[in-house]
Design a binder for these strands. Structure first.
Lengths: 387, 387
DNA sequence: GCAGATTGTTAAGTCAATGAAGAAAGGAAG
DNA sequence: CTTCCTTTCTTCATTGACTTAACAATCTGC
């Protein structure tokens, strides 16, 4: 319901009737409830279609907020977004380093407070805190979400970068009401987040969208995952950096500090016009494009967004290549195109996506999503034969 | 609800409470309704867990039936299945050939009647007719489903082979209650059907699961779809047959009659021990396995079933190769394995799947499935500024 | 045979959504 | 301006799915 209003931007009650299939009566009461809660406002009138003019509705963007946190090796990024997913405050601080978990949590809580107070948003308008973090090194077993919940007093939602980014694009990226979209995320590796009918698809063990290990060359080099020719091994950021280091003409300031910073260095070199660097990126782009086509064919995608720090810096190289591949070879292109776009906020996508997770989880009732996994095989005692 | 009973095989009311999350009261009334309708029967008691013993429930397999029809170039296959998806009658007849659509429909109606009457099943216990057919040549525009509905007096459901086969395996293949499963279907080409949480995923334009055009070699030969190195172009049945025809040692009785029969000939040769034929199939299997890994990684699959006429005859070659690939290189194998199996009824899978479509559509209420695609962008007149 | 545990049913209440009826707002023809 | 029609939006009684609470029915163990 809210998702439909969000997708449309501006819509009337009659528009909602058509979009949702509910009856006028239902829409009427539902909309009034949303208006009473302050989530929706009436913003104007449409031209008449022969009778009474329609009243137009919009999300009340300033009625609720969400905090998104991207915890990474390099640093911690905080954003505060409004109901529309727009960033209203931003903060970047040092990463966790070797600090003690509880110390970091305390610091994060303080920094979140600073973020919220800095723009004078009332605390009770903040719905919660979304957190995106890589599989954390020595934090094994530490209940990060519980601790943060305690320390900040906000509900905490956890997820991975690609899934969060996909939801962030769905929520705020102007994707509209498309049924199936995906976000290609390039950070240290390559991942994909999948959004189907407005809800994220995570798969059996939360690893859906592992596009990094899609095979693009059955006879290619062996990947650490056990397969051959995975995109990540052939064309991921680490592979690009490795090629650059091995390249005779490319003696950049690559010191193997981190994959992310070295990949950025290669991208800068390409932008400066160094053809060797550009070639490396274009080669990578061709493989990534092939993996994107594979994904689009399997899921019958409508929208694909390139996002994450990797595409923030090198998106200009990748976008045309991926777009061309899908225009030329997407299987269902006769039925519909795949809209390939570059995120407008690729570098902060994880943090924004983390905030979107909160908006989604707090505002979309469960029954509008997919049902919970059914815990079958519930202990059943042995059956006895009938008398 | 019915799906949970089906998945469990035998389950008590308390088991249903745990599996569905509903309360005892709800289960009680719901189960009584199902028993009154004859869909479910009480079949025994479980051992006590300290108090009253649980009453065990099962689907009443003989209470309802469904007809599945596979309309193909080679012939028409009919099956009648019971509520459990087991075949109780089977019929194979000549294909449509160049006959007039209305003639074929009349013949099909007669053959369906013969099928049902042959095993003395009451007509009103037959829920409907599922139909699987390839994109039909000159039948363009003919309302096949409506005509069949008229001629047989049964509700008709249409779908494609791979999707139907996947649902058939989900319903009757002993897959149980797994959340995500897929069927790899090999007929004239290669396709995949996806079942997520018991409902089929079709994608934006009904083309989801187009695994035939997953890329397994970014530098491979150009496929008719526009891409390079698609599995179907590199290792599909047609590619295997083409290699066999070009092979110097393999002068089989291949006359290029049809891909299906020629692929079967190659498979028979391999089974006879002709090493050249076996090598061709094993090469194909390696590529198919790689595509299967790609699919499993993207969807985070739990179960993958090989089915369709292609695997019916050559499954023994493909199964171990696919299984090995997924055991060795499936990304999430640490979290859970992918159960790869060969369908027990691979050759009739489309027909059985067609029947399963009926069981699903007639018995699983809409609200338990995914919601309908929302037709957004409903004509909205131009907005006027606020006064 | 009785206490305590467990299973299953019934009855009353809640909540989301609906259909039917009407109120409110506008346009067009006289 | 009045009358009539269309369209939008609301109100209200009803339905259906589900829940809580109380109770009835079985079974085990002592």
């Amino acid at each position: 319901m809210l998702d439909v209003i969000r997708a449309a931007g501006t819509i009337s009650r009659v528009g909602l009737i058509n979009a949702t299939g509910f009856t006028g009566a239902t829409i009427s009461t539902l909309v009034r409830k949303l208006i009473d809660e302050g989530l929706v406002v009436e913003t104007g009138r449409a031209e008449s279609t022969g009778g009474k003019r329609r009243v137009l509705l919009q999300l009340n963007h300033t009625s609720r907020y969400a905090v998104g946190v991207h915890l990474d090796h390099a640093g911690i990024t905080y954003v505060l977004t409004n109901l529309g997913g727009s960033v209203v405050a931003r903060l970047a601080r040092a990463g966790a380093g070797a600090e003690d978990p509880s110390t970091v949590v305390a610091r994060m809580a303080a920094e979140v407070s600073a973020l919220i107070d800095g723009v004078d948003v009332e605390r009770d308008r903040v719905l919660g805190l979304g957190l995106v973090s890589p599989a954390m090194r020595q934090w094994e077993g530490y209940p990060l979400d519980r601790a943060l919940e305690q320390a900040t007093g906000l509900p905490v939602v956890l997820d991975n970068d690609a899934t969060a980014a996909a939801l962030g694009e769905h929520w705020s990226g102007g994707i509209g009401g498309t049924a199936t979209s995906a976000a290609l995320y390039m950070g240290t590796g390559i991942g994909a987040g999948l959004v189907i009918n407005g809800i994220t698809y995570r798969g059996t063990s939360g690893n859906a969208g592992e596009i990094g290990h899609v095979c693009v060359d059955a006879n290619g080099p062996v990947c650490w995952c056990g397969g051959r020719g995975c995109v990540e091994a052939v064309a991921g950021p680490a592979a690009v950096v490795a090629s650059a280091l091995a390249h005779p003409e490319l003696r950049l300031e690559l010191k193997g500090v981190s994959v992310a910073s070295d990949f950025a260095a290669v991208s800068r070199a390409a932008r400066r016009g160094e053809s060797a660097a550009l070639e490396l990126l274009e080669r990578s782009a061709r493989y990534v494009a092939v993996a994107a086509r594979t994904l689009a064919n399997l899921m019958d995608l409508e929208v694909l967004v390139l996002t994450g720090p990797g595409f923030a810096i090198a998106g200009a190289v990748y976008l045309p290549v991926v777009r061309e591949e899908l225009e030329r070879a997407f299987f269902s292109r006769a039925a519909h195109p795949v809209d390939v776009r570059l995120s407008r906020s690729a570098s902060t996508a994880p943090a924004i996506g983390a905030a979107a997770l909160v908006l989604q989880s707090e505002l979309v009732p469960l029954n509008e999503g997919l049902r919970l996994p059914e815990n079958l095989a519930a202990a059943e005692p042995a059956p006895l034969p009938l008398p």
